[in-house]
């Protein structure tokens, strides 16, 4: 057993960590990317994600099928997204604030309804073993890839393509860039945003289902430590590009694996500082890459929150 990789195991653990941890970030941020491109911001995805985690777990428990759980999580997320969109469509309603309210509502409701789900154990989603060729356990373990991760990666590229090349993508972008222009071609801005926000919610629900049904793979009230909120922030970091959301999520996941990975090879001092690495790294990258002139590039013009 060639398990003694020394410090080389740190980058390997970071890749493994990125694959394991990033999936919820990918789903939430790619979904929110679509929502924001349509000119609507949904800060409530943290609550949506937790509702998805709870409902997905519950359905998997009752039905015995984790994939049915994922489906229901998507449905619940879609409903919450639609509710958010419907409320924000009312005149004079602030979508940033409503999102924060929805975050509270979703979180509270999930904890409330999820009480009976903490003790029982639901079946988990499986993984594909891409590491079968290697005898090194670290590599073997790093390449245990969950289906949802692959779906998330595919969706990020598909979303980028669709936004650019389809009629539907054009309408979404128009709704986000200029309401007047959208109206001029006869598209319904309200309907577009409703659909985009609902899809964003569905994505977040699936991201939540990943948490409860695969990694860490159980339902409890501490399940999310702000991943949903952070994922929404990553959309701004990724400048509203689905594929960049994917890279940002992976980077963020990898940075989050630094602290346990370093401790596991014996670098143990200052682990709190290492655990802040994802946030410091994101901030540093933003400071390095932004400038007053360029920061607005990519921002949908109708997006109030980031004007």
């Amino acid at each position: 057993m060639a398990s003694d990789l020394g410090l080389w195991s740190v980058p390997l653990a970071m890749i493994a960590g990125a694959i394991r941890v990033s999936t919820p970030f990918i789903f939430v941020s790619v979904g929110e990317c679509l929502t924001e491109r349509s000119g609507r911001i949904n800060l409530g995805l943290e609550g949506t994600m937790i509702m998805g985690a709870m409902s997905g777990y519950g359905v998997a428990l009752v039905s015995g099928s984790p994939w049915l759980g994922v489906l229901v999580a998507a449905g619940v997320g879609m409903l919450l997204g639609a509710l958010h969109a419907a409320i924000c469509q009312l005149p004079r309603v602030n979508d940033v604030a409503t999102g924060i309210g929805m975050m509270l509502f979703g979180t509270g409701l999930a904890f409330f309804l999820g009480k009976p789900l903490i003790q029982p154990k639901a079946p988990n989603l499986g993984a594909i073993d891409f590491g079968w060729w290697s005898s090194i356990p670290q590599i073997h373990q790093a390449l245990q890839v969950n289906y949802l991760f692959i779906i998330g990666v595919v969706l990020a590229f598909a979303m980028a393509w669709a936004l650019k090349n389809t009629r539907w993508g054009l309408i979404v972008r128009l709704a986000g860039e200029s309401v007047d222009a959208a109206l001029a071609i006869g598209a319904s801005v309200a309907r577009t945003r409703l659909i985009a926000t609902s899809i964003g919610g569905a994505f977040a629900g699936v991201g939540g289902a990943f948490l409860s049904l695969y990694y860490p793979g159980s339902w409890n009230e501490g399940l999310s430590s702000g991943q949903g909120l952070m994922a929404v922030a990553l959309v701004i970091f990724a400048r509203w590009e689905p594929v960049r959301c994917l890279w940002a999520s992976l980077l963020f996941g990898a940075a989050g694996a630094i602290s346990p990975a370093l401790q596991s090879v014996g670098v143990t001092q200052g682990y709190y500082l290492f655990s802040a690495a994802p946030y410091v790294l994101t901030l540093a990258l933003m400071i390095a890459t932004c400038s007053p002139e360029r920061s607005l590039r990519g921002a949908p013009a109708e997006l109030g929150a980031v004007k």
């Binding site: 493994a16 860490p216 501490g222 399940l223 430590s225 602290s259 346990p260 596991s264």
Partner: peptide, 11 residues
């Protein structure tokens, strides 16, 4: 911190 605990176990 469930996700961190799982990460720690895995590493």
């Amino acid at each position: 911190l469930p996700v961190k605990e799982a990460e720690a176990t895995n590493s």
